[in-house]
Write a protein that binds this DNA or RNA. Structure first.
Lengths: 221, 221
DNA sequence: CAAGAAATATTGTCTAGCAAGTACACATGT
DNA sequence: ACATGTGTACTTGCTAGACAATATTTCTTG
């Protein structure tokens, strides 16, 4: 396996940790993060902290305007709809293409295997292999630009996944089964069926998440 | 018209100028740009220059590895194919959606009007309105994430457009006509026809550009 | 209580500099 | 002559401290 080791810069390491803390809810939505906070927390100079914050801003997990303090994003129902719709745009086209060449990415199958092995009761553990399943489908097209486009969405996608699982809106086995059926469609070259199943797969997650959010907090942004 | 003026940071201003110079060929593909070069050229501190360079790197117009000097990208035939394919993925889906709601973005029509008004003989003048035509279609969906995905591609798209026009591979009037017919399909709700025409529109540009590149420089990267 | 003014916090940018990594020419040994 | 090491110059990564410009909060005053 290539790329086992990697020398990461301090900025990247801090950005990675901030990302993780946002996903884990350690940094709650709406929480503000000043450059000085980050700098002192990681014991680095302020410009270094600034660079890490700006990286996360580009990913869409933090937001800030000029001269304003960065803030952890709060995804409202409309934002969730946007994220899932954008995913559906790209992923369904990707599936059509993979089905056309009957490509079943090895890594997607492996990731889904890990989902099957999960114990019940730890719903959050599904997020990582679930994300990897979808990412490996995108990357299997072999188009760097398409992968890059999807990467600009991945942060928010993951946030949505975490919320779906935290609220236990979807059963692990259902996710696994649908992934499996998608892979079977790819192998058989059934482009339309694969795309339709993906739409269903994403649509259900979206609808349940939006519904759950609508109850607790009314739509506004 | 909103947003006429904007207070831009020094970093943004430098990034914008670098971008322009890359599009205009003032900074030729393959040319290296050190942080110190940029800093002294614009008379700013090196960290400021660094930030500007990093912005352009994420846009895909410059590339650099850790501890390596930034370099203006050279788009090979494979990269050009990737760019046009990625565009087609997103834009055709967008057109289907706009046709579904019979939406004809005002700004797209205006941009295409400007193309019609162009004199012959200044082929590069078409790039700006052409880009605006396609961008306004994307933005008309009203999905921030989809717009963001497309933005991550825009730099390279523009580079391709500049090359197509520099080599005079496409006639201005043909571009205008096809844009017009796309808008008519949208107005009439003909989703499949709009998407098919777009594929043709992009496919021809891609094929001619790739062919022209294949002659002068053999495909390798 | 509301509006304005001062104080505070935060970001944008700068200067200066050291440490670490890279590249390229040169020298060395076989 | 060729491969391998070595050294030097160049470039980037990061730090420290500082100041100006902009936001935000607090306080004062009508």
């Amino acid at each position: 396996m290539a790329g086992r080791i990697a020398a990461v810069s301090i900025v990247d390491a801090i950005a990675a940790d901030l990302r993780t803390r946002i996903f884990e809810g350690d940094l709650a939505p709406g929480r503000t993060l000043t450059e000085a906070d980050v700098a002192s927390a990681y014991e680095v100079a302020r410009p270094t902290a600034k660079a890490a914050i700006e990286k996360i801003v580009v990913e869409g997990l933090l937001e800030r305007g000029a001269h304003k303090t960065a803030r952890v994003v709060e995804l409202g129902p409309d934002a969730v709809r946007d994220v899932y719709l954008a995913r559906a745009y790209l992923e369904s086209e990707v599936l059509r293409r993979l089905a056309g060449s009957r490509t079943v990415p090895q890594e997607a199958a492996e990731a889904n295997g890990e989902i099957a092995d999960l114990e019940r009761g730890m719903p959050l553990d599904i997020v990582e292999p679930d994300m990897r399943f979808h990412l490996s489908l995108i990357d299997a097209v072999g188009n760097e630009r398409i992968s890059r486009m999807y990467r600009s969405l991945v942060g928010e996608v993951r946030l949505c996944m975490v919320r779906v699982q935290s609220l236990e809106l979807l059963d692990t086995s259902l996710i696994h089964d649908e992934h499996q059926r998608i892979l079977e469609h790819l192998e058989a070259g059934r482009a339309d069926e694969a795309a339709a199943l993906l739409d269903e797969h994403l649509g259900r997650a979206r609808d349940r998440l939006v519904a759950a959010m609508g109850e607790s907090a009314p739509a506004r942004d």
